[in-house]
Amino acid sequence: MSFQLREGAMTAVLGAPGSGKSTLLQHFNGLLLPDSGNVRVGEITLDAGSSQAACRAVRRRVGLVFQYPEQQLFEETVLQDLCFGPLNHGVDEAEAEAAARRAAQWMGLDDSLLARSPFRLSSGQQRRAAIAAVLACDPDIIVLDEPTASLDAAGRCELMARLDAMCREAGKTVLVATHRLEDVAPYAEDYVVLREGQLTFHGAGHTLLQHTAALEAAGVIVPGAIRLALGVAELTGIEFDRIWPQPSELAAAIHQAYERGRPT
């Protein structure tokens, strides 16, 4: 498998469970080393014979968020848990706390929650805290494995919007592995489709939807709402830069077409 991650954008890795998504993600931060070939992150290259020191160096730049990350919270207070990462990377306490607070803000965690025990947060808050814990290390690249798993609809939208903000406002490179196309469709620029450990597609959103066979073979369902947007776009000849425009965007485009087509 070979591909390059686009910097400063959100890339989606789509595939059914068992397609190799989780294994792939663990190669991005040196948890797993390739049998052959290499993984290059900036100036660091990881291959089959790489040292633990090289892997550690990569982990400073790549933050990996596992599925159900709230399971890894363990400190007495949320703030301490957020500081865990930076402290491990050798940052001094004052800076670690500052980084932790910044990360908490990014994830919309109220200051009052920071002094609480992580076990006393609601499930939604725990999810955000766990992701903030990874963000606190200030990685350039953030890799997330099914970040919206078992969240309710509002929770999913909020989280994805925040991840998008990380790209747009903080210039981070974000990679989301998921089986839900509707989560990433409003935001992702690049799409990678995995099937049984093979890469069956890599490209921009528009080309993805021309390859629905690849998606179906990979077990990814194209939800009706996306097909509706597609149909509308096709009929009215409107083009969007994301495969699934926000309702306001779609409405605005339809409005424009409507105005143009209105008999004078």
């Binding site: 009706g224 097909r227 509308v232 009929l235 009215t236």
Partner: peptide, 19 residues
Amino acid sequence: ALVSKISASPIRMEQALSV
């Protein structure tokens, strides 16, 4: 219905719309 009114091409009902 709205979109097919303002569209250039004829209505294509086979656009799989199972929302």
